[in-house]
């Protein structure tokens, strides 16, 4: 039996090292390229079919995702948040497509790497912090000062607020990463158990039904984690716009 973590190993396909950067082609690069082809191709097909026939399923899928993201933004942030629509839409499609692509048997889960999720989360947090300084100026620091608090309690609460602000990218990254890792390990363990139980003919296909049920659970988790990632990003953006 191979190691439990074999499915998370990154293979190196082609080594390209320039003077300043290491741009080697690895499994992650290949899957990101595949992601671009899938998402852009899906929307191209949807647009083509919409102009050709109109009112078909491809168009419905595209519009469904679009309206879902727009409703989410209007519900969480309100009107000024619509500025973030392209970013939130691409973030949602990115995380969702990578999660679902990882569920194909024998494939690789890009969001199961802490490297990828942490880079994504810390880029988002740095970006919206800079944006907050641009719209509020130095008043942005009010985000660390809760209102309606007695003065002697203030230093402690400011410290807690700063800690919670700094720990946000870590919690955002580890949530997605840990869910994907634990889910795939669970499927691996159940699958090994099912293969082992195949030698007892009287059990029948019961283990495989169990595997299929866990695959559906993982499909639900994949959608849910993409939704939660986008939702928490929007909550952080709303927090910065309203300053408590």
């Amino acid at each position: 039996m191979k190691s439990l973590f074999e499915q998370f190993e990154i293979d190196l396909y082609c080594i390209i090292i320039t003077r300043f950067f290491d741009v080697s082609i690895t499994t992650i690069t290949v899957y990101l390229g595949l992601l671009m082809v899938i998402v852009i191709g899906m929307y191209k097909v949807s647009l083509y079919k919409a102009t050709l026939i109109g009112n078909n399923n491809w168009q419905h899928i595209g519009e469904m995702i679009y309206e879902f993201v727009v409703d989410l933004i209007l519900e969480q942030v309100g009107k000024p948040g619509i500025l973030f629509f392209p970013f939130i839409m691409s973030l949602f499609l990115f995380v969702l497509t990578l999660n679902v692509m990882g569920l194909i048997p024998l494939s690789f889960t890009v969001t199961g790497q802490l490297l990828v999720t942490f880079t994504l989360a810390i880029t988002i947090m740095i970006g919206i912090t800079i944006w907050g300084f641009r719209i509020h100026g130095i008043k942005f620091l009010n985000i660390f000062v809760p209102s309606g608090i007695e003065p002697w309690l203030l230093p402690l609460l400011v410290f807690i607020e700063i800690m919670s602000y700094v720990l946000r990218p870590i919690s955002l990254a580890v949530r997605l990463f840990a869910n994907m890792l634990a889910g795939h390990l669970l499927i691996h363990i159940i699958g090994v158990a099912a293969i082992y139980l195949m030698q007892f003919y009287f059990i029948g296909i019961l283990p495989w039904i169990c595997v299929i049920a866990f695959m559906f659970l993982e499909l639900g988790i994949a959608f849910l984690q993409a939704y939660v990632f986008v939702l928490l990003t929007l909550i952080y953006i709303a927090n910065i716009i309203n300053l408590h």
């Binding site: 919690s171 949530r175 840990a178 869910n179 390990l185 849910l224 939660v228």
Partner: peptide, 24 residues
């Protein structure tokens, strides 16, 4: 409810991460 489920499950998965970290 889905948001609360995901958040509380993620906290539990941190414990599982710790377990894997110790083990491997």
């Amino acid at each position: 409810a889905m948001l609360g489920f995901a958040l509380s499950e993620a906290v539990g998965l941190l414990a599982l991460m710790m377990s894997f970290l110790i083990l491997y």
